[in-house]
Amino acid sequence: MIMLSVNWPHVWMVTLLGFCLVLCLLFVLIFILQLLGFLMKEKPAKQAAAPAREAVADILPKEAATAKSGDAATTAAIAMALHLFYNGIHDEEPTKVTIKKVERRYSPWNSKLYGINNLHR
C-alpha cells in the first residue's frame, strides 16, 4: 500500500531546493573550470606556438604569417596549400594490368592433396 497523504511542504522543498542545488553546484564547477583554464591555458600555448610561427614565416608570404592565428581565411589558405602540395606527390604507375601466373610445384608433403585437387586435369 502506498501512503496517500502528501507532505507538500517537503515536496516543494525537495523540488525547489533540489533544482537550486543542482544549479549552484554546477555554478561552482563553472568557476573552478574557468580558474583552471586561466591557470593552465596561457603559458604552454605561447611556448608551443613560437617555433611553429617561425616555421610558417619561412614558408608563407609575409601577410599570411603576420595574420592572426584565428583568421579562418589564413587557415583555409594553409590547408589548401598543403592539400595541393601533397596531392602533387604521387607514385607514377604503369597503366598495364598484369596477371601473375600461379604455379603449383610438386612436393612430397602435399602430393596427395595435389593429386586430389587436380583430378579434373
Binding site: F19, L23, I30, L33, Q34
Partner: peptide, 14 residues
C-alpha cells in the same frame, strides 16, 4: 572544459 558555461545548460536540463 573549453566552454564551462555548458554546465549551466546541463543543470537547466535537469
Amino acid at each position: 572544459i573549453a566552454n564551462p558555461k555548458s554546465l549551466l545548460l546541463g543543470a537547466a536540463a535537469q
